[in-house]
């Protein structure tokens, strides 16, 4: 066990030695500080510690749905864009070199000469990279949780689940980075190929979701033209849905996060702030709301379970590559 801890700890030390780690820490602190500049009271929103006040019924503590609205904002903007995209990309950039640098001459020779198996070495390094992301996520979620609690008076305990979800999301992609890193011994190539893999694994779920949207919203129009629903579309939806079962489902993570924080539907949020919007716009939003409420929710266990299985296959492949080659 000493060996495993030693390797994990070394991965962490290696990561914090990189500039990107500190860039992410600074970004986290800046975002938390920016969030802290906003607070809510019974009447609405206070910005810059009361320097600017916006009256809003929806975004006030008097709104009983306020907590779920905050959850929606957190999921849509923090989980989806900031952590799910920027955070994961930064984490991948930071950790892309873990295996290529491990496999450089002079490093790998020493490690392989130690009394441990190659698979143990590989998995320890892999877990080390995940630990690094876990700590980054913990810092981010911890800080923003406190800001939301203290400044916004909203204590969303399910928000802590983001830490786990982010590590899982990162692990889906890092499995590819590890595989390509082991195969090519190049951080840059591994990173670029991971980007390609991300697109590939995103495609089946995205395609199936789009086709499901057509199915669930019969009145949907594209460029003003109503979309005809055909059996062919249904067939392709099943094909993509089946295909998505075999790849890590990165897009499901945001929805699972929404479930865990009890987020309101995004169209509900938009509707609540569009009192003065034109009638047509409100009708469109209500249609969107109806559609959103009809879409079948993601089952976290099935989604994460099948994704982790796919990830395990990729990791095993990478481990096999690492174990069989000469250095």
């Amino acid at each position: 066990m000493t060996q495993v801890w030693s390797l994990i700890w070394d991965s962490f030390r290696e990561s914090i030695d990189r500039m990107m780690f500190w860039v992410m820490v600074v970004l986290t602190v800046v975002l938390a500080a920016a969030m802290a500049c906003v607070s809510f009271d019974e009447k609405g929103v206070n910005i810059l510690f009361g320097a600017w006040k916006i009256e809003s019924e929806s975004f006030s503590l008097s709104n009983p749905d306020f907590s779920s609205f905050v959850g929606t904002i957190v999921v849509k903007f923090i989980a989806d864009y900031y952590l799910g995209l920027l955070g994961v990309i930064v984490a991948l950039i930071t950790t892309a070199g873990v295996f290529p640098s491990l496999m450089t001459s002079g490093t790998v020779d020493l490690l392989l000469s130690k009394p441990m198996s190659r698979s143990k070495l590989f998995l320890s390094k892999y877990i080390g990279a995940l630990t690094f992301v876990f700590l980054q996520s913990l810092l981010f979620v911890g800080l923003t949780f406190l800001v939301m609690g203290i400044r916004w008076h909203v204590w969303i305990w399910g928000y802590w689940g983001f830490v786990l979800l982010l590590v899982i999301l990162f692990s889906y992609l890092f499995a590819f980075t590890a595989l390509f890193g082991v195969m090519t011994r190049s951080s840059l190539t591994a990173l670029l190929l991971t980007g390609v893999a991300w697109m590939v694994i995103w495609t089946p779920t995205a395609a199936a979701d789009t086709l499901e949207a057509f199915r669930m919203a019969p009145g949907m129009t594209v460029n003003g033209e109503p979309v005809e629903r055909s059996d062919e579309m249904g067939k392709w939806e099943r094909v993509f849905r089946t295909a998505s079962w075999f790849v890590p489902k990165t897009t499901d993570i945001t929805e699972i996060a929404g479930q865990w924080v009890g987020a309101a539907l995004f169209s509900d949020l938009l509707l609540s702030v569009s009192d003065s919007a034109p009638e047509q716009q409100r009708r469109d939003l209500e249609e969107s709301r109806e559609f959103e409420s009809k879409v079948s929710p993601v089952d976290p266990l099935t989604s994460i379970g099948s994704s982790l299985l796919s990830e395990a296959v990729i990791v095993l492949l990478a481990m096999y590559q690492f174990g069989r080659r000469d250095y």
Partner: peptide
């Protein structure tokens, strides 16, 4: 292997570690 020592022709130590930490790291692995 735990009672074998090895110095490869080329050694690349983690440059974020001090000399003492390097030895501690490899000793733990042994």
């Amino acid at each position: 292997k735990s009672v074998m020592g090895y110095l490869p022709e080329v050694t690349r130590f983690p440059n974020y570690l001090t000399g003492r930490q390097v030895l501690d790291y490899y000793a733990q692995l042994s």
